[in-house]
Design a protein around this nucleic acid. Structure first.
Lengths: 166, 166
DNA sequence: GCTTGAATATTCAAGTTTGAAATTTTTCTA
DNA sequence: TAGAAAAATTTCAAACTTGAATATTCAAGC
């Protein structure tokens, strides 16, 4: 996904802006978006491992749980993180083994399990989150807060347009 | 990475804008960036599989090779795609097994191998790339071409600031 | 000619990820 | 209420991914 070939479709001879170049502009944006994501993810992965012995997927799951002190269902976690169900199962398994999160039953439904951060997990995540925020600020420092807000707003526009199976 | 907890650090009582809220704005941008990437990747993965029986990593490698008809070294591919060396080895192995790319020797250096698209791979990628471009255009349609160009430019700014081991 | 060091790629273990199939439990309906 | 359908999760195989360790080859220096 990093590099779809840009010069695949030629521009119109008359040189007017039209659907075609628009498509190229969006494709370019997508490539930049993806490269930016990979860069930031790579940095965060490296530092999480070096400074906290943690991995990115674990951080993600803990971040989700941190926002919901009452706990989350497995399916809520996977929907929020936009990853598959089976994926979350494995990550939570390992987090449970490390004593960072806990599975528990609620509301009498034996299909579901509520996942919560343990006290230990809460403390561990708080430390990572503070560092994480400063890493992002450092890496995105070249983008002004105003630009960041503008881009955030624009990126929201296609959030729910496609939810799988379009 | 999808959700670092935003309300971790409080704003100043005086209400002035300062470093702190800037950090939050950038963190918000990063979260949006990542969610957008996951959404688009998920869509592309699903359609590549359904319509072409291909995977995203294979598409990425083929896209890189498509841009360089003379071939690329393994290390060039991994640097361009920002993934690890060992990763590319496995993907290329499978692409070779499917007859889509070929390994060959060049310039007398027996350490290196030049990877090129086969004729079959070239044709297969061309078809996928055209579809891919229209998917992106469809999904990013809510963003104007002008906005897309502006965002692309701003996203370039922190490309080379961090290249691993900062 | 050696031998050290750099460059390039592969191998490997551990973890992540998907998507489909299977399991368990609940809910609906005839 | 029995049975079908739905919901939530787990299981599983295949593929991907990293990062460290290893192997191979090349380039210099001695």
């Amino acid at each position: 996904m990093v590099s779809a070939p840009l010069p695949a479709v030629a521009a119109r001879p008359d040189g007017k802006k039209e659907k075609e170049s628009d498509s190229k502009a969006r494709l370019r944006l997508w490539i930049r978006l993806l490269r930016a994501s990979r860069l930031i993810e790579g940095m965060a992965r490296e530092r999480l491992k070096a400074q906290f012995g943690a991995t990115l997927p674990r951080f993600d799951v803990m971040a989700a749980l941190f926002r919901q002190p009452d706990g989350m269902l497995m399916s809520e976690i996977s929907r929020f993180l936009m990853v598959s169900n089976g994926n979350v199962t494995g990550i939570v398994d390992r987090l449970v083994a490390d004593g960072l999160v806990a599975r528990s039953q609620r509301n009498g439904d034996r299909r579901t399990s509520f996942i919560t951060l343990t006290r230990k997990g809460h403390a561990a995540f708080a430390a990572m989150a503070a560092a994480h925020e400063s890493w992002i600020d450092e890496l995105l420092g070249g983008i002004s807060a105003r630009d960041a807000e503008q881009m955030s707003t624009k990126l929201k526009s296609f959030r729910s347009d496609w939810e799988g199976e379009a």
